[in-house]
Simulated scan of single mutants.
Amino acid sequence: MTITQLKYVLAIAEHKNFTKAAEKCFVTQPTLSTQIQKLEDELDITIFDRGKKPIELTDVGRKIVFQARNIVNEADRIQDIVDQQKGFIGGEFRLGIIPTVMPTLLPMFLNNFIKKYPKIKLKIEELTTEEIITRISDGHLDAAIASTPLESDNIKERVLYYEPFVAYIPNSHRLRDKKTIEVDDLDIEDMLLLEDGHCFRDGVINLCKAFKNQTDDHFQLESGSIETLIKLSNEGMGMTLLPYLHTLDIKEKLNSNLKHFKEPSPAREVSIIYHKSELKMQIIDAMHNVISGIIRGAIAFQNVEIISPVAK
């Protein structure tokens, strides 16, 4: 049994196809098939049910994949130890970022980060929190930037910053004349929300439900982007809540629509998250330090109350 064979097993389990798995592993399909057959012969079991389309794991195959993932991760640790000993910060690093953080945070730190660490090859994807948790657990992401806490046993979290919620209220809205907003002012029935699947949406719902006996999840309008919510609000369709960093890009003529909350301001916690196996920690530490240093100048709020992103 070899580490390479176990990597082939994981690739097939992911792609459910020998040809695609071979392409992923940069080997020919016959080479991959031969190595899998050797492993199955050595163990005297069948890992994959080749009669199914797409290919499926057998019962024992699922247990082997679980253990193979642990073994491959631990094997990767050896390279991590060597890199740390040599003080090397480089190589491929796969990062996921949730949609409500990507457009504001990424432009703030990316240029500085790649200039400071030119040997790191970043691969960045915009993903939902659910997708991020799955990919980190499966070993397909090295880390991610997401709203926390996530209450996941497989994932560790390191806080980057706390980002307050800010109300965006159009001229025609009932709360327009208030200088500051209180959480108890909110009514989910006249709130514009992001579509299902966004953790910021879940945070807003949790915020409203914490102060009202709100059980009817009926909303007027839902959208896939914060920019669309702002445009809909400008058309008099309701108010919305924005993460603070998004308000920095609001046109000056619309700044009067922004209303801050009475302290402690409701806020989301944004963290860099990674697998509990703690692979590539030297890169995670570097990214945490760069982002924390930059964000300190943009967000000065301290008196906040963290709202969970986990759907209740």
Rank of each mutant, 00 (worst) to 15 (best):
L192E: 08
I12F: 06
D49L: 07
E182Y: 07
T100W: 00
V204N: 02
R201V: 07
D217R: 09
K7M: 13
L192S: 10
D217P: 15
K121Q: 13
D216A: 13
P309V: 12
F301M: 10
K179E: 14
I124G: 02
L229N: 03
F109V: 09
D249C: 08
H246E: 13
L95M: 11
K53W: 02
L241C: 01
E56L: 09
D49E: 11
G238H: 02
K262A: 13
L43K: 11
I145G: 08
V27R: 02
E131A: 15
K38G: 00
I230N: 06
S137V: 11
P243M: 05
G203T: 01
V270R: 15
E23I: 11
V183P: 00
I114S: 07
I188S: 07
D153M: 08
D196W: 02
D217S: 14
R69T: 12
K16F: 00
Y274W: 09
L194P: 03
E131T: 05
F301A: 15
L105Q: 11
Q5K: 07
V304I: 08
E305G: 08
F219R: 02
L122A: 07
Y161S: 05
I132S: 09
I307F: 02
E252N: 12
I284N: 01
H246N: 13
I145P: 10
I230H: 09
S233G: 09
I120V: 15
A267F: 02
D49F: 06
P149L: 06
P243F: 04
E263A: 14
S256F: 12
D196E: 15
N257F: 12
E92A: 13
F66Y: 12
V101S: 07
D217I: 04
I145S: 10
S233P: 06
Q5F: 02
I47R: 01
D190Q: 01
E163T: 06
S223M: 09
I226G: 01
L221F: 14
P264Q: 03
P118E: 04
K259C: 06
S152F: 06
N70D: 11
Q302Y: 10
Q67A: 08
S233H: 04
A167L: 04
F301D: 15
V159I: 14
T148P: 00
V60N: 11
N70P: 00
N257Y: 14
T129D: 06
Q37H: 13
L193W: 05
L106N: 07
S265I: 01
E14K: 15
E151W: 09
N234D: 14
V183W: 00
H260K: 10
I145H: 05
I71L: 06
H218Q: 12
I169W: 03
G203Q: 13
N17G: 05
Q37I: 13
P103L: 10
D177V: 06
K276W: 03
E126Q: 14
M108A: 11
F301L: 04
G96I: 00
D184M: 09
